[in-house]
Design a protein around this nucleic acid. Sequence first.
RNA 1: GCCCUGGUGGUGGAAUUGGUAGACACGCAGGACUUAAAAUCCUGUUCGCCGCAAACGCGAGUGCGGGUUCAAGUCCCGCCCGGGGCACCA
Length: 925
Amino acid sequence: MEYNFRSIEQKWQQHWKDTNAYRVLNNSTKPKYYVLDMFPYPSGAGLHVGHPLGYIASDIFARFKRLKGFNVLHPMGYDAFGLPAEQYAIDHGVHPAVSTDHNIKNFRAQLDNIGFCFDWEREVRTSDAGYYKWTQWIFLQLFKSFYNRTSSKAESIDVLVASFEKEGNSVHPIPGAQYQLPGGGNTFTAAQWKAFDEFTQQSILMEYRLAFCGYGEVNWCEGLGTVLANDEVINGVSERGGFPVVKKKLRQWYLRITEYADRLLDGLQHVDFSDAMKEMQTNWIGKSYGAEIDFQVQGQSAGTNLRVYTTRPDTIFGVDFMVVAPEHELITTIASASQKQEVEDYIAYVKSRSERERMAEKKITGCFTGAYAVNPFNGKQIPIWISEYVLAGYGTGAIMAVPCGDERDFKFAQHFNIPITNIIGDAFNGEEANATKDAKLVNSDFLNGMVMRDAIGVVIGKLEEMGIGKRKVNYRMRDAAFSRQRYWGEPFPIKWINGIAYPLDEKELPLQLPHVEKYGPGPEGEGPLANIPEWTARHLETNTMPGYAGSSWYFLRYMDPHNDQAFCDRKVSDYWGQVDLYIGGTEHAVGHLLYSRLWTKVLFDLGHIGHDEPYKKLVNQGMIQGSSRFVYRVQGTTNKYVSYGLKDQYETNQLHVDVNIVDGVELDTEAFKKWRADYADAEFILEDGKYICGVEVEKMSKSKFNTVNPNDLVERYGADTFRMYEMFLGPVEQSKPWDTKGIEGVHRFLRKLWRLFFDEVKGAVWTNDKATDAELKVLHKTIRKIEDDTERFSFNTAVSAFMVCVNELGELKCSKKEILESLLILLTPYAPHVAEELWHELGNTGSVLDAAYPVFQEKYVVETTKEYPVSINGKLRTTMHIDLSAEQAAVEQLVLANEIVQKWVEGKPVKKFVFVKGKMVNVVV
RNA sequence: GCCCUGGUGGUGGAAUUGGUAGACACGCAGGACUUAAAAUCCUGUUCGCCGCAAACGCGAGUGCGGGUUCAAGUCCCGCCCGGGGCACCA
């Protein structure tokens, strides 16, 4: 009887399906464990061997936890809305719903092939109305909430309104500093609030809502009648058609994620993410501590101040000029008559440049306004410049420039010949800025002699005393744009009437995405929904939600996927709680992870769930790179190819060749001729009768012909081999190249395992004999190793531990049920099909999926002697078997009597004798 | 430029707390079985030196240069190279 993996795998997959082996219940006496894979987008290209890596790892872990007695939730679903499907629809005339459905079918077939233990009854798709009903519902919660800065959490907007009616906005000032009420200013009393008309009231509330609508700058292309992404704009004109593109403020939905900046930062201390991941999120949030300082502008009325943000108030005596962003509102007020034309020209120039150009070119540009600010401490006049290196959206959109301490300021000063004041003495060399905080200040009036680090607080204190500055924390993170002018996404449950956004009643959800035939943009940068008369007649919002809407909360829906009364029953989310293990790539470091953390915090604040961090532990799987193969076409010929080893004798061109027609490095020349029509009459210059290909590691991609389809490998070696090989390749977190050839080693291992049970001629060879000490030792060593390795996600070493175990049992000629049965349970997470088959062959009737995990017993692995390495002066010279209970004195005697040791010691006195019990011996002479 | 990673045989990788570097595989070489091939199995395989050869032995060796230690792939200091992220954030 031989290892017929095809029929075995088919049989058990069918059996598990028939018996609902992977169904998970929401109530259990067992402890819970939640294993989640990052939501895949079902692309039309299908899976290559790089994709399932994380799924296999999570599957192994889920099965392991199940064997260890946990109730394990391990679901899968699809992030089905999104731009690619819509783009495909536009290009091919297939409705996104149709192509998405088709892609999901293929995706599912590929997944099933690998034998995952997903509970498919819990599958979710973000594009299903039953799902996005709740995405819309959560959006409404965001819309109807504000961030209460006094309680530091989201609360109902009703709380805010009640406060307004009682005390105006004195308790809850408007979060956006720039906002101006229709009559100017940004504070109001209770009486004023009550007197505002509805439009004004709603406009004010919009300034607080966690999901809000505002105006944002976008690239508007009149010629194409649409908004363009940054990468679709080149040199100020559209990539397609060359039409001019201008920055335009357009209505957009946003999430007020900035209010959660601190909590998102703090939360990182309570989750188990890699340092790199925490670092990326921390940088993205970009918290900085500094001060806002008001500078009087010369010749302007007392109220017209230039407010700057700086993290280095200690350098205030080194300020040689001010720089404001080109968008700064004060420019028109302060620009002098003589500079007016120059300023206008400069602003026009900046407007013509896209964000991308601005960043790519990094030219030093700028323009003097003709106005001067006054240094509040010494009355010095400071010229005010405009430059695009200062960003309107950060801080106050204006800075005080200190060229001796800031590289950008230094370069600007040099470029425009602005004299530089040195306030750090020898620490400034005149060649480049020095951003130190440890220098002693000079030329700094009352700060002279003080270390900069200490001066920061002193200056802020003084500014506050004078009433012209205050401590200020800033964040780099901006509010998240939450609308797309696209079709294939969740419609917003919002109606617009007279410029006021009204939420739909929850009973009206889901607001169904209407069917359309065309996906072209609507007028004035609106989405395709604006082209549907029935839609606009209902005054419905025409934008749709972005891709990350549905994926921000899907981990909650898996818990209770069919509930049509709530997004997830509170009792159910309390039972499952956080995702215990989340596996996925690093590409979602700041997008998806930050958004889903935000949504979780809001839902927690509003009392809908009981935890405020979605993921307890995050593991990032590495990428599997492609290993490309090349053939070398001789130059001057149309179809003559020279083998790798001989190519230096010719002038050649290197061409990618499909890795699937190469065995290791040897090209299948017949397959090559059949591969593409123009290679049909190819000729080869061989070495040793073979055509050897060149090899290079590159990204795995169709265009490089280095993709490998898991289906082909499963067909040839079986799912169990494939799963184990993906793990055997190396640590999950690490990127590594794919090498199909290596899979045979894992396949051989499974056949070796099989032969412990069955002989090709004799049939079953396993016995009920009592296991020997040596056999039990092999088994228990393996139990310990597999358990440890699996717990710490070291799946590659676990696979080799299985190999070692089977090799050793083979040497011992051990085919005893007592040993093999336990081994099968250990193997179940990794190779479930063959484990289940052999489990039944041993006479078990239940499924191995629910067997009791073997318990490691120390007594079987205790050693009495150890082969000690013996070094002389740190160099290994020999090894000696010594009783483990032996103490230093006895060992010393034994070792020094050893012939080889004596030879090396050569009668010299022993200076030191190092003995670490159970480890090693070192003789120092 | 800044931050985070990593660098070990021909290849993927192992060495969990400083204690026998190269586990386990791939590849390669040789052998067995076979008319032959495939499959399978066995042996060898870090490099160098000595040697007809094997055994044994010796020397070097974890990107480079220093250091700490009885002992360093592992710890410290200074470099070099690859991968990833951020990039006018004041």
